[in-house]
Write a protein that binds this DNA or RNA. Sequence first.
DNA 1: CTGTTGAAATTTTTT
DNA 2: ATTTCAACAG
Length: 690
Amino acid sequence: MDTTTAIDGLLAGLNSQQREAVVHGDGPLLVVAGAGTGKTATLVHRVAWLIAHGVDPGRILLLTFTRRAAAEMIRRVDGAVRRLDEAASESMHSQAARIWGGTFHAIAARLLRHYGKVIGLEPSFAVHDRTDSEDLLNIVRTDLGLAKTDKRFPKKGTCMAIYSRCVNAREKLPQVLQQRFPWCDEWGDELKQLFDAYVDRKEAAVALDYDDLLVYWHGLLADPAGGARIRNLFDCVLVDEYQDTNRLQAEILEQLCPDGRGLTVVGDDAQAIYSFRAATVRNILDFPKQYPGATLVTLEENYRSTAPILAATNEVIGLSSERYRKNLWSERTEGEKPLLVTCESEDDQTEFVVQKILEHREEGIDLRRQAVLFRASHHSILLEAELARRNIPFHKYGGLKFLETAHVKDLLAFLRLAENPRDVVSAVRVLGLLPGIGPGKSRQLTDMLAESGGDLQLWRGWKPPAASAKLWPELVGLIAGLSRTKGDLPAQVHRVRKFYDPLLPELYDNPHPRGRDLEQIEQIASRYGDRQTMLAEITLDPPSSTQDLAGPPLLDDDYLVLSTIHSAKGLEWDAVYVLHAADGNIPSDMATKTPEEIEEERRLFYVALTRAKRSLYVCCPLRYYRYAGGFSDQHGYAQMTRFLPEDVRRHFQCCVGSPCREAEVLDIQSDMDAGVASMRIRQRTKRLWS
DNA sequence: CTGTTGAAATTTTTT
DNA sequence: ATTTCAACAG
């Protein structure tokens, strides 16, 4: 068999539009791929096709939205190339592993470690995640005396969001304030001052935040020498989920491929859901204008969902304003209409979903082929409790990360301080753990380090307050010892734990589960070769589910997927349950100020619905308890989501999720409800004196 | 200068 | 429900 036939084999399973995209030549290419139209398959085949035509895999850059997506895609490219390889004798060696694949941020980190020196960046820089950045911002804020103004200064999170918006959208501060944060407008001067100081402190700490990774990559490309060098590394650049890139990322791409040659971007404007992170649909909408002569390929044949589900989802997105016109269709016309389930209360919703999940499992659809999706992380709390009570295993994706919990951050701060003594954030964090040491003394100590360029020996001579007299030499010894050590990460973590574990009960409420988390970190540490890699990778690619940390799940492990809609992007399941399809949740109350925000919420809802292959359930509990007013039994009524108006609802089968009374009675016996009940009693009693 | 307490404000999605 | 800030005691 010769190579040509083998390549024909590669193209065999593709439809004509997909094939057009795969075999496209050198010019700029935009693939607009509707949900479930084989976007990933197309991208994978295009990369394999490029390799088959002699492009060096080591000169291909594949930018994805998560590291998980990159790894999966490279694995599939490898498979495709291997099949080619066998057929075409051994002339081509499968070297898909040499592809540069990852998120914009991860690739930036990698490039900057190698080439950052060109623009004066130390290769050993630390990477700060969002909470680190907020902490540093907070330190700077108190330094500048902005914390004690007569009117309330914006919170650190808000400051960070403003800063990030400016950087990623490349917008001026006054504009950002007026358009996005009007209530902070009066603080313009102070914010400017704050951001200036923040940038200086970051530089002194030799740390880059998420935004910096992009900014410095951009800067490296803008540098005459550096730019030429980076451009020279790649022949082809492919970008997945292009609709969720921001202005800065689009500029980076333009710098990489000034005339668009070798550039392929794939995306779906109907699924743009990251504008809160400054992503802009304009990138994908304006691509043909930005690169004259660009080819546009549209994929419309859907291979994922049944026709009745598609009919409903097409209708939902049909109500949105500007977008590339697409009409998704499927050959599979069988199947049920999606179900619109109105539930009286949140409990009924939980009960309905659990029942259905179990029914489907009886029918042979494993838990792992089913997913429950929701707008905000806390929307699944009730369901999680119920699943736990019934011993139904699940993995939750999205929401607060394990790594963002205080005790885990504490432990990592020790390692980070040892790695980079100028990292003020970690230093302040570690120092604050000791009794008798607060912001004031931390300031002294970090200043000492900063002036000496990070000489830990200076700490030895410092006189600690009485409360920490015994701990202080131990801490200094620990950090100094760690910074001399290179390998054996689990041993390093173990040493930190020996120091830190005894402090836990003083610091936090429930020390035992926290202690167990730390044991887990010790386990995880063995996966990494050295400390710098571990710290960088863990901030750039935090484990996406809580169970991820326990290691790869066993093959026969079956578990249900719970996920925020954002984290469900690009994935699919046989049965999908969407929770809380009520106005206020979808769209979120916090995102209904402008028409643009509402449009994004609509697309978010669309993303949720289009994850379903065979069965789709949209639940809408009508009655909500109001927690706000304290411990009253007040409740309010919710409206069904505005994204399902009357004529769209025709495509759904409506039903009422009615609870099984018997089950409800039984439930009262359970620990869960007993706990809630006794809590109510305590609260009522408390009302007697409060 | 630290640690505690109470009151007030805010409440999403994530690399 | 959680986070942040000011006031106060040691």
